[in-house]
């Protein structure tokens, strides 16, 4: 079973994402900000990370840059999931090593489609 870490400061979003990802047969962990997420990754690198941008303590882009410098931090597939929806933010995310990008609001179809693009779910399984 693949693992996915949901990083979002909104408990509601984490709950919605968890339900969708568990339906897609992921084992889900949660973190409320970038620092918590980094601690979780140091313990165990997940296969995928669904990552919000604006969070307290450490935001999504800071977390991503820090993650990619960690030992084994190049392996998780990172999918941003944020209300930031302009080309500048998207480009910055890709430059920092994001694999895919979801603009909120999202639904199960979009999340699944993006996880397929990112290679976290095979197209046949989708």
């Amino acid at each position: 079973m693949k693992t996915c870490l949901i990083v979002d400061d909104s408990r509601v979003i984490r709950k919605v994402a968890r339900r969708i990802l568990e339906d897609l047969r992921f084992q889900v962990e949660e973190a409320g900000d970038g620092l918590e997420a980094l601690t979780a990754c140091r313990k165990s690198m997940p296969d995928g990370i669904l990552l919000d941008w604006n969070m307290p303590l450490m935001n999504g882009i800071e977390f991503l840059r820090a993650l990619r410098k960690e030992r084994g931090g190049d392996t998780p597939i990172v999918v941003f999931c944020t209300t930031e929806n302009d080309v500048e933010h998207i480009s910055e995310a890709i430059k920092a090593g994001a694999n895919e990008y979801i603009m909120k609001p999202f639904d199960g179809d979009i999340l699944q489609s993006k996880f397929v693009e990112a290679g976290l779910i095979s197209y046949e399984a989708a």
Binding site: V87, I90, S91, I94, E100, Y101, I102, M103, F106, D109, I110, S113, K114, E117
Partner: peptide
């Protein structure tokens, strides 16, 4: 967001 990879989008 359905079917388009983000790199293709931008």
């Amino acid at each position: 967001q359905r079917g388009l990879p983000v790199r293709t989008l931008i």
